[in-house]
Design a protein around this nucleic acid. Sequence first.
RNA 1: GUGGCCGUAGCUCAACUGGUAGAGCGCCUGACUGUGGCUCAGGAGGUCGCGGGUUCAACCCCCGUCGGUCACCCCA
Length: 424
Amino acid sequence: MADQHATVKGMNDILSPEVSKWQFVEEKARSVLEAFSYRELRTPSLEYTPLFVRSVGEATEVVEKQMYTFDDRDGSSVTLRPEGTAPAVRAYVSRSQWNREPVTRWYYLGPMFRHERAQRGRLRQFHQIGAEVFGLNAPSIDAEMIAMLVGMLTEFGLQASDLSVTINTLGEPDERVAYREALRAFFSQHVDALDDDSRRRLDTNPMRILDSKNPDVQTIAAAAPILLDTLGMASRERFEQVRTQLQTLGIDGETDPRLVRGLDYYTATIFEIKAKVGNLGSQNTVCGGGRYDRLVESMGGAAIPALGFGMGVERVLLAMTEEAESFEPALSLFVAPMDERARLWALPVAHRLRMAGIRVEIEHRDTGLKQQLKRADKLKARLALIVGDNELASGKLALKDLAAGKQHEVAAADLEAKIRQLLD
RNA sequence: GUGGCCGUAGCUCAACUGGUAGAGCGCCUGACUGUGGCUCAGGAGGUCGCGGGUUCAACCCCCGUCGGUCACCCCA
């Protein structure tokens, strides 16, 4: 397949009927987000490289080896966005949004790019539905967002019982730094028992050792200090309030003290939702996010707290077990002209119906009625309009209800009304 | 980035562990000339992912490459 028709590895065409499932998810997502008072934000796909290096973090996997970075023609380094928060923050800061609006809720929907080893649920061009809230730091907004996500996934047709919500808190940056040192000290005592990955993380990000899947490392990690225990009263109380309010909203989120995030900007509450159903492989995290209370300020803005999430559209689609075909829109009417003259007469009729919002297909090829009805059937048309010499002569059109097998004689003037009546 | 498995018609797969490819579904056409879904009969469609090697001979063996997939890693 490495020919001139190949797509770039990990990047796919999306066509019907699959695209119908995409549209369904996108429409549902939009309506839920709009209901929660978010407005859409559209940012460029390409940004100057330092934006991601500074916000996502220099030592993160994403920045170190997954970004599509190249020199633009003028020599400046640019990067295809690997995630949506940094561009949103850039947009927020660049127009001093906090001066215009104390609380900003933005959502976005679009392709992200990460050069990873592709597998099921992990593409190089993948799509995220995401949102950011700037200017709020009450625990209730954290709970609101998580509950909204569960609600959105439910709207997609997933059962709440098939989702698992995990939450944790990373505390404030200074608390995190202290904890990191504590962990480093702890694991340093057990260096001999650590695998290579974990040893490497001892320097770069000791918190990641905690969610190692190596059983030996897990045994040691079980005795490691717990972040939550080391946090100050304020952080712990805040987290407790998030948990309580989540319960109020009917969400039973499980606290996982080992949950960490791979992007550096996160603070305080972080969360993840996994889907336990569908065709997801090991990549079953459907969405994740958290607070990033220092990012706006560190990007040159005011000290504005914020939080956000990213949801992987491909993964949501895999979790949804319904066939893509079932999301395909039905064809309302197939117009079958018997010959050139009939087609000439029928085309403007079809045009008017289409402009009236009815989904209509008309045969443009010279083919017999039998073939046309077969085609109508294939297209799952609800109705067929037969136009031939008889109809043109009598002025009575033949409108056939394909499912019922009943044919109706209709005057041209009554056509639209009759169609709407039969479609109900 | 590391390791395993896989790659044959549009789709799902088959071809005695070497002798130059088949089925089902789908698609097209027809079964007395203006009526579909069922049935029947025909038909089109494959450089066996690509390149190289071994061999008298390769879809089947070897190497490389591209793609997919699973696990690790990472994350949405």
